[in-house]
Structure formats: structure tokens, C-alpha cells
Design a protein around this nucleic acid. Sequence first.
DNA 1: GACACTGTTGACGGCACGACAACAAGAGGT
DNA 2: ACCTCTTGTTGTCGTGCCGTCAACAGTGTC
Lengths: 214, 214
Amino acid sequence: MAGMSAQSPPRWRRLEPDERREQILERAIDLFAERPYAEVSTSDVARAAGVARGLINHYFESKRGLYLAAVRRIVTVPTFDPATLPDGPLRARVETLVDWLLTTVSKHAKGWIAVLGTEGIGSDPEVERILAEADRRAAENLIKSVGMHDVRPHGQQLRALVRAYGGMVKAAVREWMIHDTLTRDQVLLLLTEQLTTLLEETFPRLQELDPAAQ
Amino acid sequence: MAGMSAQSPPRWRRLEPDERREQILERAIDLFAERPYAEVSTSDVARAAGVARGLINHYFESKRGLYLAAVRRIVTVPTFDPATLPDGPLRARVETLVDWLLTTVSKHAKGWIAVLGTEGIGSDPEVERILAEADRRAAENLIKSVGMHDVRPHGQQLRALVRAYGGMVKAAVREWMIHDTLTRDQVLLLLTEQLTTLLEETFPRLQELDPAAQ
DNA sequence: GACACTGTTGACGGCACGACAACAAGAGGT
DNA sequence: ACCTCTTGTTGTCGTGCCGTCAACAGTGTC
């Protein structure tokens, strides 16, 4: 008819690449966090994000690429600003640091629980690399925060010790946030004492073991 | 022709169910240990085991069932016999125990590395259950070994602390066996000191925090 | 208001998995 | 030796998922 102005509204909105990519990634993280990889189909993610399935391949190459992007995003944890650490005995500084860590973790609870939750078999070099890098950053950040950034000798061994300590941090947080078998205070006590011991007792002894080293 | 005795040999051997199941499972563990779950096809496992693909479904229900069986097998670790622990100060007993642990782990290196290697996101309740149960057993075994099986109060919290400690054990072993950033002696020192501190310092303090408890 | 750019869609081909009926190896009986 | 029954094993069929790609349609620009 003449005068017919019934504009059919757009069937889909056109977004900036970064926006669309982000939208898909968020939905993917939700789904990967609640179901194992193989149980999440790209169709599921596409449906949740309200886009066509093919778009996932356009932005993330493959399902695996999407998964890796999700892992990368989740393990990206904010770093501690050493400037906010008070002076004083090591133990006090460590306690402040661990306290900040627990607060930070509880804010990012969803992602952390997803990462902490499972560790099955399934050697995946790329995932391992991403996680190892995240652990390395976390350890480096911790060491810098307590002012031991350039201790020597055995600086590398110190970093390895702290990365090992990181394994206990994850497990302790799991006990607290998932299994509810420890309180926040108890975890704080545990992680503070253990790190203090590590830095004040274990590391010096390790240095004594082999005085001739880097 | 008469006298033709060309018996065509059997095209396949018939095995006892347990035998065949074991054969398939071993190959599956190899493959799952070297490639991520999604990259291992049931055809691959079948080919490696020299059987038809359908047989996998017959013995393990599904690919996922096969994977769960592999995880179960790998996390089954021998337990320590407390009778072999010498008397003496706690620290000495702990050191003996950790030393035994490291020896045991290095024997089962392949499986352990596979388990320790990856922990990506991907919430999988069944896998979590299997691993949590393995951690629980390990912690219980350790506690019994050092003779703290029935300390009170806070026996449950002690178990949680030791499970958290288990996270450090895994991470430390990873540093030693995979990344080669710590020596066996250094790992022994670390794990001995940390566990001693946990049992002698941290746990008593935790008990003091809340004297009124189970 | 028409054009061009590119974000987005939908369909096609191949492959992996689970189900199931048919097959055959091997043991036991005659 | 031969037959027969049991059941371990195979191969095929249907379904669903993933990666590719050409066509389509928002949306800024002249």
C-alpha cells in the first residue's frame, strides 16, 4: 500500500569486533565453568550468546581456541601493589599480603573455582603453558611484594619454592571456598605461617646446602 | 584339493574380559597422558589396542567412561606402611615419610606427571570426586603415619590442612620432575620443613583460635 | 538515498561417537 | 573328530558436532 512505512527492524545488530568477541567469551566461560569441555558444544555457546555458530570460528578459530581464550582470561589475576605493604617484621608483611590475596580471590570467586575445581589427566601443552605463566607471574609478584626481588644466591630456587607454595594456596582456597572445611581465618593463618617459614627458615637452609651457586 | 590343510589362522584372539579391558585401559592412559581429551579419538585408542572401536563402548560404556576409568587408575597411589616409621622427634619421622613419598612418586612418574601436568578450567563433577577422594586418602594416610590419627579437637581441620599441604606436594614435585627447577634434596627439605611447621606450629595455633570445638 | 565495507548468517562436507545386529573363536559335550 | 552353545568381537548405521565458505545484510560514507 502507499504510505506503508512498516520498517522491518534489523534482525541482528552489528557490533565492534572487540565487543562481539567479548560477549561470546563471557558466555563461553560460564559454560566451560559448569560443564566439561566435551559437553559444551559450540552450538551451546552460540545460542547462549545469541549468535550464529559460525561466528565463533570467525573470532576464535576453533572450539579449542575459544577454550584457550577462556583459560587465559580466567587465570589473569590482578597484581598486588607493593607500595601498600607496611614496614615491620616479615610475618606481618606476609600476613597483609595473604589477606589481600584472599580478598582478591573471593572477588573473582567464580573464575577461580572453575580453575581450581578440576585437574584431570589430559596433557595439554598449551593449557599448561598458560597456567605455568600465570603461576610464574603470581610468584614473581609475591616475591617482589615482600622485597626479596633480588636476593642471591639461589634466586631461581626461591621462585620455584614460591611456585610450589602457590600449589598450597590453591588447595587451601579450595578447602575454604568449595568444600567449606576451613574458615577464612584458618586459611589466613595457614598460608601466613607456611610462607613465613618458607622465607625465614627453608630458603636460608636451602642456601646453606649449596653455598656455591648463582 | 584333497589333503588341503591350510587352516586359516584366527583373525582375532578371544580374551578374558578383564584382560581385554586392561589392555584397552593401558593404551588409553598412554594416549590421554600425551594429548588432551578431545584430541584422543576412540578410534585412536582402538587402533593402539588392536581392537575394533565398538569394543570400547562394550567395556567402558562411552568415551567419557573410558576417561574416568583412566583417571581412577592413575590416581590410585600405594599407601605408606606406618610400621616402617622410626621413633624419634616429629621432624625426623616427617622427613622419612616425605622421603618415601618422593621415592614412590618417582616410580609412578608417568602417571603422576599426567595428573600433575594439567589443570585447566572445565568443571567435571565426576573427575573432581575421584581426585578429591584420592586427596582424602592420601591425607588420611599421612596423618595416620605420623600418629595423629585421633588428635582432638579440630581433627577435621587438621585433615583439611594436610589436604592443602598436598597441593604444595604436587606443585613441588612438578617443579622437580617436570620443570627441573628444584633438586630432589631441595624438595625434600621444603616439604619436610613445611609439614613439620604445619603440625607443630600452625595446627596448635588453629586449636587455640577456637578452643570450643569438636 | 545509493554505494561500499565488513560483521554476520546459513548451508555443506567430513568425521567422531553410540547402538546394535551379525559373526566367529573357543570350550564342552557326545 | 564333530557338533553346539556361549559370548567376546566385529562392522555398519544413524545422529550430532565442528570447520569452511560463499552469500547476505547492517551501517557508516559520499
